[in-house]
Amino acid sequence: MASYSTNEFKSGLKFMLDGDPCSIIENEFVKPGKGQAFNRVKFRNLKTGRVNERTFKSGDTVESADVIETDLEYSYTDGEFWYFMDPTSFEQYGADANAISESKDWLKEQYVYTVTLWNGTPLLVTPPNFVNLAVVETDPGVRGDTSGGGGKPATLETGAVVRVPLFIEIGEVLRVDTRSSSYVERAKD
């Protein structure tokens, strides 16, 4: 397995720490007075999602983590795992509740998600920035009101609840920004 020295540290670098795959968020080189240099590293543990800090002596090495990002199609869930498929090889990957925690309100069959794999196991499922989803529940629309003022909650087919303009009706397909859980516009077909 490849290893990285602290001089190769940069944000986005994937490495192993205490048995868990991690990704560097921020790396700072520090040299106190006339003493030995060290690196102050802020990283995300990709298994738990937690952000932490670790100090490394400059010149220390860490093992690289076999982490890749790939685009997979969501298939179905059996309640315990959420299954994603590689559209070319048809290989299936089961993601646990932890891995889909950021995307569970946005999972729709046959949509494509970015899946972070570590040794072939999904660590993190990231939804696309924008998805088109149908409204399954909302108060009756106020016809003619296209001002966008006010608003009301609407439940989408994946379970997400977003605030939408008053004129939106059940059954309409909306374009939604998954990062802010916000309505963008009516989907154009």
Partner: peptide
């Protein structure tokens, strides 16, 4: 005080002083 420090961190007295000073 420095939770980011691994348990096996090695330093001499000046090394610890420098670390405390900078961190």
């Amino acid at each position: 005080r420095l939770t980011s420090l691994p348990e096996d961190w090695q330093a001499d007295k000046d090394g610890w002083l420098e670390l405390l000073m900078s961190e």
